[in-house]
Every structure is written in structure tokens, then in C-alpha cells.
């Protein structure tokens, strides 16, 4: 951020960075709260309901109250769990979700690090969360949670493959793994990658949806089969951590998608008088809205179908996309 990382270490710089991180954490928390609020409102409206409307004006404080309730709840640790793992699993799962945000450039100047392998960093770090989920599921010593944990792992590992392959096309086109370079490439060419990389975009959308464990791919928590999946034994703020992880990933993944496919902070149609951060937020909200919209519409797929779909459907398509991009690139079209 502002080149601090390139400077010599000093306590001042460290403090600035730490404060910035806390600020970001607050922003993310705020986002999570209002994302949940937004989700409940949107789904409510789609189901002819009003959604939260009783706490505060238009129910704006509903999720705040919910979070508060979760935080001050008694911290229940069941007797027969593997205590140590049970306690750290939510943390293991949450930390990476927050770490990945560091790599995302929100605007030209607002970003935390400018890593050259930003994409790789994202992919690598985000897969760490699975460990937390698996540990949580296993440590809970509950049959439902272990099944939920296993499902999660199977699902997330499977969908990571098409997810990463889907942006290989972009990497081929720009020749860089740096997220800022990718946005710049889009600004320079004047065309967002959603158009030349439409297949990649669709694959990313589906695989991302699955990575986030959201409907129609919310099997790990499939309430009606597994009660609540891997966090069935969790309550209070540990449960809140798992929830948080999920929504922070929603934040991170949607941001990544905006960066990769929707031109980041680039203003379309030359509407540059609107500040770039607003553009970023708008595109971002659009994607988040889609996720909620899908949740209001689709039933859940089955675990077997899910796996089949990843390996027999998405991965071949993603591979094809990579090949196509490579061929087109060699022919000089891109």
C-alpha cells in the first residue's frame, strides 16, 4: 500500500499497515453484515416477503443485532470434541479468507500489495480454508459434520481446478499474473475480458459459486440432509467465524471476478466522472446480487452430480477455453 511494502521496515510503517488492515477488516465486517441484510431483503422480495424490517429503519440493524447476539452467546464446546482442533478450526478457516483480500486492487491507488503473482496467491491461499473446514468437521465428533466436512473438501478441491483454469485464458492473453496489470490490460484495450473470455467467465461464475458453497452448490451445509454440515456443533462466535469466512469469500471472489472479467475500476462508456471505487462497487454488487438471485431460484444439486459436473463438464470446458485462447493468441487475434 502506497509503496510501504517496498520501503525499509520501520515501526511507523508497521503501524500504518496494521491500522490499514484493521480498517479493511472493519470494512469487510460491515460488508458482511450488509451483505447478509441485502441477501435477506432480496430473497424476501423475490418470495413476496418484506424481509427484515423490524430492527431499526427498514430493518437496517437486523444483522447488527444478529451478529451481536452471536458474539455474546455462551461459548459451548461439546464434551467429546477434539478440543484443540475444535477451537482453532474456525480461525484456520477464517484467516486465509481475509488474507486473499490483500491481493485485490480496488482502484488505481487503493490496493494493499502489488504482488506479481496475485492470481496465484489468491488460488493458493484460498485453498487453505478447506483445512479449517475439514478439521472443524472432524473435530466436532459428529457424524453429520464429518460428512459435511468431507463433502466440502471434495467439492472445493474439485472446483478449484476449473476455477483456476478458467482464468488461465486471461493470463495467456495478458501474459501476467498481476491483478493490476490485468485491469490495466483491460483499460488499455478498451474491452473487458468478459467478452473475449466469455467461456472462462461462465466457468468462473459456476465454479466460484461452488467454491463459495452457495446454492445451488450448498451441499456441505445441505440443511435438509446434513442438518448444518460441518459446523453443526458450533455455536456463538465460533459459528460466526465460519459464517464470516463464507461471506468474506463472497466478498473476495466477487472482487476478483470484477477485477478479472469486468474491468476492475474501469468506467464503461467513458463515464469517468463517477469515481472508480463506485464503479468497482457497482459491478461487485451486480455479482453479489446474482449469487442471491440464484439462491432464491435454484434447488440444490446432488453430491454425485456435483462431482460429475466438475470433472466431466467444467474442466473440459475450461481446458478447451485455454486451448482456444492459446490458438487465437498464436494466430494473433488477441
Amino acid at each position: 500500500m502506497f509503496g510501504i511494502l517496498d520501503q525499509q521496515f520501520s515501526w511507523l510503517n508497521f503501524t500504518i499497515l496494521a491500522l490499514a488492515a484493521v480498517a479493511l477488516l472493519l470494512v469487510v465486517l460491515l460488508f458482511v453484515m450488509y451483505a447478509i441484510y441485502f441477501e435477506r431483503k432480496v430473497i424476501g422480495w423475490m418470495q413476496l416477503r418484506k424481509g427484515p424490517n423490524r430492527t431499526g429503519p427498514w430493518g437496517l440493524f437486523q444483522t447488527v443485532a444478529d451478529v451481536l447476539k452471536l458474539l455474546i452467546k455462551e461459548d459451548v464446546v461439546p464434551k467429546k470434541v477434539d478440543r484443540f482442533l475444535f477451537l482453532i478450526a474456525p480461525i484456520i478457516s477464517f484467516t486465509p479468507s481475509f488474507m486473499v483480500i490483500a491481493a485485490i486492487p480496488f482502484t488505481e491507488n487503493l490496493y494493499f500489495t502489488d504482488i506479481n503473482v496475485g492470481l496465484l496467491y489468491y488460488g493458493a491461499i484460498s485453498s487453505l480454508s478447506i483445512t479449517g473446514i475439514l478439521l472443524g468437521g472432524w473435530a466436532s465428533n459428529n457424524k453429520y459434520s464429518i460428512m459435511g466436512g468431507m463433502r466440502s473438501v471434495a467439492q472445493m478441491i474439485s472446483y478449484e481446478v476449473p476455477l483456476i483454469m478458467s482464468f488461465l485464458g486471461i493470463v495467456l492473453m495478458t501474459g501476467s499474473l498481476n491483478l493490476r496489470d490485468i485491469v490495466h490490460a483491460q483499460i488499455d484495450s478498451g474491452i473487458w475480458f468478459i467478452f473475449p473470455q466469455f467461456i472462462g467467465f461462465v466457468v468462473f461464475l459456476i465454479a466460484g459459486n461452488a467454491e463459495l458453497n452457495r446454492t445451488p452448490f450448498d451441499l456441505p451445509e445441505a440443511e435438509n440432509e446434513l442438518v448444518a454440515g460441518y459446523f453443526v456443533e458450533y455455536s456463538g462466535f465460533r459459528f460466526a467465524f465460519f459464517m464470516l469466512t463464507e461471506y468474506v469469500y463472497t466478498f473476495a471472489l466477487s472482487s476478483l471476478m470484477v477485477t478479472l472479467f469486468l474491468g476492475g475500476w474501469d468506467a464503461p462508456f467513458g463515464l469517468t466522472f463517477i469515481p472508480p471505487i463506485v464503479w468497482f462497487a457497482l459491478k461487485f454488487l451486480l455479482l453479489v446480487f446474482y449469487l442471491f438471485w440464484a439462491r432464491a431460484t435454484f434447488p440444490r444439486v446432488k453430491i454425485q452430480q456435483l462431482m460429475e459436473f466438475a470433472w466431466k463438464g467444467l474442466i473440459p470446458v475450461a481446458l478447451f477455453n485455454v486451448m482456444l485462447t492459446a490458438v487465437l493468441k498464436t494466430l494473433g487475434i488477441f
Binding site: 432480496v42 422480495w45 423475490m46 418470495q47 413476496l48 416477503r49 418484506k50 438471485w293 440464484a294 432464491a296 431460484t297 435454484f298
Partner: peptide
């Protein structure tokens, strides 16, 4: 089917709410 369903729920977004 996906798009039909999505279209339907989108239409419902602005429909009159029935909550009492």
C-alpha cells in the same frame, strides 16, 4: 429452465408483497 426460473424470480422482485 435455469433462465426461466431466474426470470420468474426477478419478476417477483417488484411484485406486491403479501406479508401481513
Amino acid at each position: 429452465g435455469f433462465f426461466k426460473g431466474l426470470g420468474f424470480t426477478l419478476k417477483m422482485l417488484t411484485e406486491k408483497k403479501v406479508t401481513h
